[in-house]
Design a protein around this nucleic acid. Structure first.
Length: 535
RNA sequence: GGCCCCUUAGCCAAGCGGUAAGGCAGUGGAUUGCAAAUCCGCCAUCCCCGGUUCGAAUCCGGGAGGGGCCUCCA
């Protein structure tokens, strides 16, 4: 494969050329949620980033298998289910649905398997038996613990020394453990708690063992990529790594990738801090695409600055793209959202002689990909996307593509550039469908000869139509009996305005524009005619 | 106390030894009857102090702030 993708590996603390165990195949495991509460935005950082990682790897020609687990048994679930007076199973089921819905909204489409921990108890027991047989683990009073001192390289992921961990007074106290740093593989259950049979009595899995069992079962003993939030690095990933390698004798993951955490002001967002923003609530106020863009705007290893103002800022920046897509449609009569663009990376020569704009587009396309090759630098790549947008608008301006007298050659160059924009947008998982709110308000005004006018449709649409009709009544006289859509009504006003402008009656024309503006409708006078936009 | 990491314009942010991407805000101009949209221009020497180097935001040492992990956490 002719590319130079480099990825930062937490294990070695440096960027390395990306190489897979099996040529052209990638196995990727990312730690998913414990489903005991509705998801907050922090839960979406990893999925969005690794979804983009998968998109890019696929684009490079890899066949990627991506697994995200669902932890559906855990102390928190037990406590929460009790609070809600329901079962662990029911709670897990409902929170899983919530999580899946969030993934869908944020366009996280690449996950191949989402195993539930409770479906893999047998695999966990097998690992525990193996670890005990090899003397890496021991049973004690119904529990099973991993002995960190038996594992020679324990702590290598996070640079921890198990000998010194005794000093930390915050490690869970238990007289069953041999060493303070030992962690539970299996927890004997108390009456009333979910339990599975095991050679050591009824119990449930410890926190880390599930990921070892599920990843090995679905992806084999050695993963190409293991991902997760920075906060999982220790103890979760360290322990996962220790038990997996001790069990299999093989390297557990070739590359460890950790994403930065979302922060609000100074502190990270987390359940334990109590400053979480629920996604369902958030998506009432902001487009899912804006959220996805915000998450990708910062390099994945850095903390992401989150706030409502930031989201508004990103949205304003995105508006430039949405307007451009409309412009593209006016010029070519094609929808950007359904364009076909290459899904696999290949060399591209502009060819000579070539339009200057094509040369520029190709250069930006390459610049974007160079950023992605550098440890999935989506922030840098997005910067290039804005540059490409400017270049495309400049092309449309310079070549007068909206005037109707565009040269075929210029049009071709333009479409070439738009195709690049489409190709790159796909890598980020954005701009693949119109914004939900961009759909024109549906509603109708029916005028009949001898009855009052009737307006139908949802409240928003009715209000808007009534407002537009009022303007018409004020400036346009009577309407012939007919059924009018919102667009038809605004068109009538636009025509009225055009006539008055032609007659140099700017006062009336400006009044129409001003009053439409008060309804949130903006008019733009373009070479091909006036267009309107609801904002 | 131990282990990591960060500090770039008003805000967000890229940058990984060769002379500061991009976005938001601001501002000047082109365009427009006026707007809107679009385009072009302007807007930072990179927390501080030393050092290495022909050359450092980028490497090393020290200092000052800030964050994460060591307990559940994406």
């Amino acid at each position: 494969m002719e590319h130079t993708l480099r990825v930062y590996n937490t294990l070695t603390r440096q960027k390395e050329p990306f190489q897979t165990l099996i040529p052209s195949k990638v196995s990727m495991y990312v730690c998913g949620p414990t489903v005991y509460k509705p998801s907050h935005i922090g839960h979406m950082v990893g999925p969005v980033i690794f979804d983009t990682v998968k998109r890019y790897l696929t684009y490079l020609g890899y066949e990627v298998t991506w697994v995200v687990n669902i932890t559906d048994v855990d102390d928190k679930l037990i406590v929460r289910a009790r609070e809600l007076n329901t079962t662990v199973k029911d709670l897990a089921e409902r929170m899983t649905v919530d999580y899946l819905e969030c993934l869908k909204r944020l366009n996280v489409t690449g996950i191949d398997h989402m195993p539930r921990a409770t479906d893999h108890i047998a695999g966990m027991l097998e690992i525990m038996r193996g670890l005990i047989a090899k003397d890496y683990a021991y049973a004690a009073g119904g529990d099973v613990y991993f002995d960190v001192l038996k594992d020679a390289d324990y702590g290598k992921l996070c640079n921890r020394d198990p000998e010194q961990m005794a000093g930390g007074a915050r490690i869970e106290v238990s007289d069953k453990k041999r060493n303070p740093g030992d962690f539970a593989l299996w927890k004997g259950s108390k009456p009333g708690e979910p339990a599975w049979d095991s050679p050591w009595g009824p119990g449930r899995p410890g926190w880390h063992i599930e990921c070892s069992a599920m990843s090995m079962n679905l992806l084999g003993t050695t993963l190409d990529i293991h991902g997760g939030g920075l906060d999982l690095q220790f103890p979760h990933h360290e322990n996962e790594l220790a038990q997996s390698e001790s069990f299999s004798g093989e390297p557990f993951a070739r590359t460890w990738m950790h994403n930065g955490l979302l922060k609000m002001g100074a502190a990270k967002m987390a359940g334990s801090v109590g400053n979480v923003v629920n996604i369902a609530d958030l998506l009432q106020r902001h487009q899912a695409e804006t959220v996805r863009f915000l998450l990708l705007n910062t390099h994945y290893r850095s903390p992401i600055e989150y706030s409502d103002d930031r989201l508004v800022e990103v949205r304003k920046a995105l508006d430039g793209f949405y307007r451009f897509f409309e412009r593209f449609e006016r010029i070519t009569k094609k929808s950007f959202y359904t364009l076909d663009a290459p899904t696999v990376r290949r060399p591209f020569q502009a060819g000579a002689p070539s339009a200057a704009f094509v040369t520029e587009f190709v250069a930006l396309w390459e610049k974007f990909l160079a950023h992605m090759d550098d440890d999935f630098n989506t922030g840098g790549a997005i910067g290039v996307l804005y540059e490409l947008l400017s270049a495309l608008n400049r092309c449309a301006d310079t070549c007068q593509l909206e005037s109707g007298k565009a040269a075929a050659e210029d049009l071709h160059a333009f479409e070439r550039g738009v195709s690049f924009l489409k190709e790159l947008s796909q890598l980020l998982g954005v701009f693949d469908k119109p914004r939900a709110e961009a759909k024109p308000a549906s509603g109708e005004l029916t005028i009949t000869a001898h009855a009052p006018a009737v307006i139908t449709g949802p409240p928003d649409a009715r209000k808007l139509i009534a407002g537009v009709k009022q303007i018409l009544d004020d400036v346009g006289g009577t309407l012939p009996p007919e059924v009018y859509s919102l667009d038809a009504l605004i068109r009538l006003l636009i025509n009225l305005r055009a006539e008055s402008r032609k007659a140099k009656n700017f006062a009336l024309g400006d009044q129409i524009r001003k009053r439409l503006g008060e309804l949130g409708v903006t008019l733009e006078d373009r070479p091909g005619g006036t267009i309107w936009r609801k904002e």
